[in-house]
Write a protein that binds this DNA or RNA. Structure first.
Lengths: 231, 231
DNA sequence: GCGGCTCTTTGCGCTGGCGCAAAGACGCGG
DNA sequence: CCGCGTCTTTGCGCCAGCGCAAAGAGCCGC
């Protein structure tokens, strides 16, 4: 199976590269597969590679000593994984796990850095990507310190819909196996509270959810909750 | 007053530059002063400059529509402010305010980017700095979702001590005007809870605090609380 | 050295959200 | 198509932390 050139061309990390640059990038890539549930790396691992997801979903998370999992990001096709450790030689602050059967392209960190020296655009792209993450994290910190669970859960769903949403006749499907537990780990709450809130929304016709599945029937009402405009 | 060359040399953003590069960097800098309490910029401003703090403290924060303030970072001498907007042309996600009388050096964003093209080391430094922020934000998100207020407050103080701590006969002084309100805005709690917890630590001899002032008498005990090892 | 502003403390009542326990629903694999 | 493992729901009791209100303390400027 050849590397999916079109996908690479649209990957934010490789945006703006000319065809010859793209060819040298692709020449260095190695493909691999990661079945659902498998770990790509653990937090504190020293990584020698940078990955780009080509299919599936890879979850970035941290595990506390007490065993609580916190989901920080979900990378879908076209998104990179392990960028920060590849660029800074520091161990990874997060762990990565496939939540679906996934395919990845990998570059050795040193090869990627060599590419960066030859193509400064890569450096600007990397900065833009890191910057985007910073903004998202700052938003989450603000939400966690100032907002109630219901609002945060609404925001989590809206973020997921924006990133991984799929239009269907019944509404916007979050295209990802997504348990109440996962939702809690993304919103800063517990399994129980997430379940109760989702039940309420179900009754209000805002979402329609099942086992590891959420469909947003009324994105508008969800925005209303996220922005606290209901009353 | 000439630009403080030694400080610039030690600034993470300018690390590893040779003398001639450093000279061209300094040649482009403009100094300015910002009295305590003054705003440098607001969130959503399009910034045309990048700053480095040379004296004082500059607080980066967000304000919610409800009027709650969340403090995301405090930049002291040698730390940059406005790096992300200067590099990405996006509006600033945060506001910045001097919490002490401060002095800054400023570069026009376009001048800085020109310097970056000539000195790739600047790009790597920028990436390392953004990466450091990402790590800190990820840690805070994990703490906010899994830890109790007391632990988070302990961590906040330890972080401040590491960054701005000053050894004194009575202990490590957080060298910054720091109200209970500020502490709450950094830890994700309220003025009242922060006050009560600090009172408890005072009685236990762990800290010694006054009006906008905190001294850590026993960093070790504070670590014990932050790591939840007490019992 | 006085007045006033701001910061801090603390009593009190309240509630959002936690988390156990147990029952119910779903769907995969054999 | 049956059984089992996993995910979800919900009753229930509890408490950490919130936030008002009011008093107290500290500091600055005149």
């Amino acid at each position: 199976m050849p590397p999916p050139t079109d996908l690479i061309r649209q990957t934010p990390l490789f945006r703006g590269l000319d065809d010859s640059a793209l060819r040298s990038v692709i020449a260095e890539a190695r493909g691999s597969r990661l079945p659902a549930g498998n770990i790509l790396f653990h937090q504190n691992d020293a990584l020698a590679r940078l990955w780009v997801v080509t299919a599936g979903r890879v979850q970035l998370f941290q595990l506390t000593p007490e065993g609580h999992q916190v989901i920080l990001h979900i990378a879908g096709p076209g998104q990179e994984v392990g960028l920060l450790p590849a660029l800074t030689d520091a161990p990874s602050p997060v762990s990565a796990r496939a939540v679906e059967d996934s395919s990845l392209l990998a570059w050795r960190a040193e090869d990627f850095r060599a590419l960066m020296r030859g193509h400064p655009q890569l450096g600007f792209n990397a900065i833009a990507i890191l910057g985007e993450h910073i903004r998202l994290y700052q938003d989450r910190i603000r939400e966690l310190t100032t907002e109630r669970v219901e609002r945060r859960l609404a925001r989590t769903l809206l973020r997921l819909a924006k990133q991984l949403g799929k239009r269907t006749p019944e509404g916007v499907l979050i295209d990802l196996p997504l348990s109440r537990q996962n939702l809690a780990e993304m919103s800063g709450t517990t399994l129980y509270t997430a379940s109760r809130i989702l039940r309420g929304w179900e009754d209000a016709g805002i979402v329609s959810s099942g086992r590891e599945r959420v469909v947003i029937r009324s994105p508008h009402k969800l925005v209303t909750i996220a922005e606290d405009l209901q009353r």
